[in-house]
Nucleic acid binder design. Structure first.
Lengths: 190, 190, 190, 190
DNA sequence: AATGAATGAGTATTCATTCAT
DNA sequence: TATGAATGAATACTCATTCAT
């Protein structure tokens, strides 16, 4: 991605995160990117058209996070725990921006492009499940591809529930993680 | 709920659904409700403050749906299937409006009020799980209260994935339901 | 004046004083008067049409003040001092409302009615000057009627200057009064 | 002053004068200035915030007028007459706009800025009085600075009384000028 | 490519006034 | 008379986008 395009995108992530889609002003975005108002439109045709770029960056960040935190050689149980921790962490940091992308569906005409966002996630989980299947760590009846999206949905929704309201304390969140882990474990093993 | 307040809320649901939060005009809402512009502000202090009322109505609809579709006397497996069907159905019909409510979190300052929204859902699932626990239909180590929210999150996220893109066909959706059912079954039984 | 009309007028004085003409709401006025919104319109055809009633009340208050504070039997010098004190006091308490009445000229179509407001003031001063003239306390070339308005204008403008900005302290104000007294004395005597 | 800012200010003076503060529309002001609606807000944050600029322009006009009409080398009596004529003339032409500025005090939060408006006037009169004092044309006990504001107040209030109601005819106004002149003369000379 | 001043369409909200009771 | 819910006209201000430099 062009250097300037990238800095606009990063600034946009910040601004959208802080103010939400509606209240985010192009003037804030360009201020954050250190460019002039007009320059924005050399790189993006409209305010909402930054969204796909944002998604791209988010996917990057996510895969980095997963790669960094999931030990390829560990047992599936360990990997599952690492996956839960990673998703919770990502949700904590980027819940608003992810919700934004989701909400962007309504506001923009970029629906098609979003479809690709989750693919890399799913592929990563799918790979994990496959290895576990081969190693006999999960039941053989598991259809890894289908279960991948279901498993990720499960973890994400739990993380969402945890971080939606700031009132949640750390202990409750830790408990939620353990609950999800146990729930998923029973679902996959046996 | 006051009769006029209710008709404003119902009209708002329609308008928000059709145009999205941003493009929804108060003038459209009042037109739909058959009242004057100023009357709106006798019942709600601002455009976004209708959201909690919308949520209230949605909860009503949802509980009606669950009550109607879940057979209290059926086995837990049957009930789980009915729950999945109901949530998928609700998601299909109201995904936009639910996303709206969720997005409303960011835009408005009504965060506190939303926290109560899911309570009745969870309570319903909790009751289901409890009966199943007593009847020995699910494993005894289940903490029904915690699992209720996780289970609902699981089903909802799967439904979301199914209806996010209209490209999904019926067969895929049916398959998704079966997958979720099996996943949840393994997680809860044993 | 009808009792209710009077209580509306008194409330209007308060509200106009606190918020200014533009920001004064009829709803505030009726709240202060302890009546319903619609009742206002049984006594006044519009918001601005309270103005003449306000003027009436202000004239009342002013004449009371002058009568109370100016000793009919005192020498003209003493009376002049008392007049200055009274006008300063009235200005301090009612500057906004007097400015309002003045500004009301622009906003309302009640121009004609305002013309009468100052008459009683002038008449009072005229009477004072006349007595002083007869007693030989001021120069014989004074045309009392003309000078009355000029004298009152002099004192009022000084008072205005004193109270326009709250920054003025008591000592400065006392000095202003002495200056005006001396100025007027030289103008009238000799 | 920036060229565009000035043209907005001049247009605002016209519009305020014609319609009053309340009914003056920003859309009228920008039309008169030949700019777009949004451009107004590049130069002024709100409708009322043009007021200080208007005051600035008025001060300019006034000082020009005084400089033009008061003969620096004439005797104080002549200068006083010229001052009275100038103030009456200015009041005649700009009474509404001056009242507006005064009223602006109540409506806006620009009170502080107005305090400076009259300074140049006073300074001008002070200078006049000083020269007269040195030349022995007025009594030596005159405190020029204090008397300057009182004298200007006297003349302005007389002018206000003259032009407040359009019914006043030229002869009455000429008489008023003579009365003020005599009043001031007696007050200052001796 | 970059700038940033200028544009002008678009709308939530207020509040004086009305009117059915 | 009195009420107060309902009305709906009216407008300041914002901000995405454009364009002359």
């Amino acid at each position: 991605m062009d250097d300037k395009k990238r800095s606009i995108t990063l600034s946009a992530i910040n601004v959208f995160q802080e103010k939400g889609i509606e209240k985010a002003k192009v003037s804030d975005i360009v201020k954050g990117a250190g460019i002039a108002q007009g320059t924005f439109y050399l790189y993006f045709p409209s305010k909402l058209s930054v969204m796909p770029s944002i998604a791209e960056v988010m996917v990057e960040k996510t895969l980095e996070e997963l790669t960094k935190n999931i030990d390829e050689k560990a047992s599936f149980k360990i990997q599952l725990e690492q996956l839960i921790n990673s998703v919770f962490e990502l949700t904590k940091n980027y819940r608003e921006i992810l919700a934004l992308i989701y909400a962007g569906l309504a506001s923009s005409e970029h629906l098609q492009e979003w479809e690709a966002i989750y693919e890399p996630y799913y592929a990563q989980i799918d790979k994990m499940l496959n290895r576990a299947l081969i190693n006999g760590e999960i039941r053989q009846s598991i259809q890894t591809k289908q279960i991948a999206s279901i498993l990720l949905g499960l973890i994400e929704s739990a993380a969402d529930q945890s971080y939606l309201y700031d009132s949640q304390n750390d202990e409750k969140i830790a408990q939620k993680k353990r609950d999800v882990f146990e729930f998923a474990t029973h679902a996959l093993f046996n």
